[in-house]
Each structure stands twice: as C-alpha cells, then as structure tokens.
Simulated assay, not measured.
Amino acid sequence: MELIYTGKTKDVFKLENELYLLKFKDDVTGENGVFDPGANTVGLTIDGAGLAGLKLTSFFYSKLNELEVPTHYVDANFEEQTMTVKPATVFGKGLEVICRFKAVGSFLRRYGAYATEGQDLDAFVEVTIKDDDRQDPPISEDALAMLNLLTHEEYAILKERTIEIAKFVGAELAKKDLTLYDIKLEFGRDAKTNEIILIDEISGGNMRAYKGATYIEPLELEQIMLAK
C-alpha cells in the first residue's frame, strides 16, 4: 500500500487494484477539547472513535448502495479499522456540504440575530470550501460556478443528493427515537464515470444527533444505531 494522504481523521492509501483504503483514526474535529463536526481542526482524541465511525459509516453506506445512491463505498474491515473505496476526484481542493434541520453550531453563530437555538430549518443546504487557513468559508452556487469548481447543473445534483441522503440518515435515526440536527457530507466525481458520488464517511463525527434535548456523543450514537 502507498500512503498518499494524511488527514485529520483518516489516512488514505492507494491499493494495487486501483481502489483506495481509508484508515480511520480516533481523532475528531472540534475546538478547545469540545467536539464540533463543523470545525476544521482536530479538537480531541476519543478512544474507539475511529472504529465507531467506521462501523456507522459502513451501516449507512451499505444501505445507500442497496438504494442505488451513487457512493464510493466498496466494503469495510473492522479488525483493520479500514474502508475500501472507489477512486474519486474532489471539487477544487475539496468541498463540504452541510444539510441543516435545526439551527445550531455555526449557523446559529452567524445568524443568531434572526434564529433561535434549535429552530426548525427546512433541510437548508450550504457549501463550504475546504481551506483551513481561511476557516472553511461558505460559498454560493454562483461563486462555485464562476470559480470553475462545479457547474450550475452539478450544483443542482449536489443539493438534491445532499437532501436525499440527509433525510435518509434522519429517517434511520428516527427509528431509534433520535433527531438529526445537521450533517456534513462530502462529494466527488467518480474517477471513471465522472458521476457525482458521495465520499468520505457518514458517522457521529460529522453529524449532530439528539434524543429529546440531549446531544448524543459520537460513540454513543454508534452504539444506539447498531444495537440489535
């Protein structure tokens, strides 16, 4: 295996069969020792977070593949804490797409003059650029097109798939009496077909889930969701 990228929460290796391997770490994003799925820095290390994230990601991706939602997921190895994926290219240096059902986190920090905490949002989609130095700034559809990161047609697909996947995840959480407040997704282009596909992970590390008014930590979320 060839190490090609060292990330905050995962390392990426290239395999000999043209597939890639993601190695999940126990690091999670946040600030000042507090977990925050929207943060662009590693905030803390949680023992077992990597395996929990992998198991939940495998759970969601397997279901999405069955529903024929385009993803990069091939399979997972829990013992090695790895996930095998198809090759994909990112938009520019990477985009993150957030779907919000409740007003919390950075949304509330920015729009607190008009929004109240926990206020209902109608699957609000926003895109941010992966840029640590500039703190992952939000970007509009027009700017994305003008900077040649993606076309208006691709943005429409990105938004539609984001809402579809976020609502699917929310429905799965609802089966366990949990409420999805927001989720951060990543997309890329399939390296062979150029189709827009879901990439990266779907775990407690990139979403906020609540039971009633109580926030559910990433490790607890995995335990709740995968309990028989």
Rank of each mutant, 00 (worst) to 15 (best):
A103V: 11
M207I: 06
N206Y: 13
D75H: 07
D136A: 08
L180I: 06
L15R: 13
F60G: 07
G43Q: 00
I165N: 01
M83Q: 12
L3A: 03
V104D: 14
A171Y: 00
R100E: 07
I139L: 07
E220Q: 14
I196W: 10
V34F: 13
L226S: 06
T116V: 14
D182S: 08
G170C: 03
M225G: 03
Y215C: 04
A115I: 13
P138L: 13
L198P: 04
G30A: 07
N77T: 10
G118A: 06
F35Q: 03
P218W: 00
G112Y: 11
L21M: 15
N17P: 06
K25S: 11
T116M: 09
D182H: 11
Y73M: 01
K23E: 15
R134M: 12
F187I: 03
T41E: 13
E80W: 04
E164C: 04
P138S: 10
F59G: 00
V69N: 08
E16R: 06
A88H: 12
F60K: 08
D27H: 12
E164F: 10
L173H: 01
S106P: 11
A103G: 10
Q81M: 04
V42Q: 05
P37K: 05
H152I: 08
G188C: 09
A115M: 14
N77P: 09
V34Q: 12
E164L: 14
V104F: 15
M207S: 07
A88E: 00
Y5T: 05
V97R: 07
K167Q: 11
F187R: 03
S106L: 14
T193V: 08
Y5F: 14
A49L: 01
E153Q: 10
A49V: 02
D190N: 14
L67G: 03
G112N: 05
E217A: 15
K55A: 04
T89C: 07
E126H: 13
R100H: 10
L178D: 05
I4Y: 13
H72Y: 01
F107G: 03
R189K: 13
K14H: 08
D132I: 00
I157M: 03
E66K: 12
V85N: 07
V69F: 14
G7K: 01
S62Q: 09
K184D: 12
V85P: 01
D131M: 10
G94A: 01
A88G: 00
A174S: 06
L22P: 01
E164K: 13
Y155Q: 01
H152W: 00
G92N: 06
P70E: 05
F60M: 09
M207K: 06
